[in-house]
Design a protein around this nucleic acid. Sequence first.
DNA 1: GCCAACGTTGGC
DNA 2: GCCAACGTTGGC
Length: 140
Amino acid sequence: MPRTWLVKQEPKKYSFEKLLAERRTVWDGVRNFQARNNLQAMRTGDAVLFYHSNAGEETGVVGLCRVTREASPDPTSDDPRWVVVELAAERRLDHLVSLARIKADPALAEIALIRQSRLSVMPLTKAEFDRIVKLSAKPG
DNA sequence: GCCAACGTTGGC
DNA sequence: GCCAACGTTGGC
């Protein structure tokens, strides 16, 4: 069964717009063991939400992508413990789902994004994933 | 730009 | 194995 994930990135470093333009990207540079473990657990076809961190008013979930290649060694590191996956852009969400909105939603209060604010790759339950996508259908 | 939270490193 | 120092992340 496909799993669902959320990845976080500062738009100044790599934005969802850029991923849309490039169609797909190698998700490199993860240097946290928990995030790495999550990358390794990703399977081709898994759905991934793209979150913009440190983006002022634009902080929140902005887009949908999909895993197109499973974990392989990170070419940007000499240390073989670090891995990358390949992500392909799927679509921009109709509306930003802001961090404030996620925090205010009882169904999302327990997600890692809130509880563990520094984790950059995290699993979501199907319910949490669907909830965020549902919220994106209407402006906050 | 500030600062709190948290992960990592290194001395002991 | 503890813990202080340090670096990084990310919300504000």
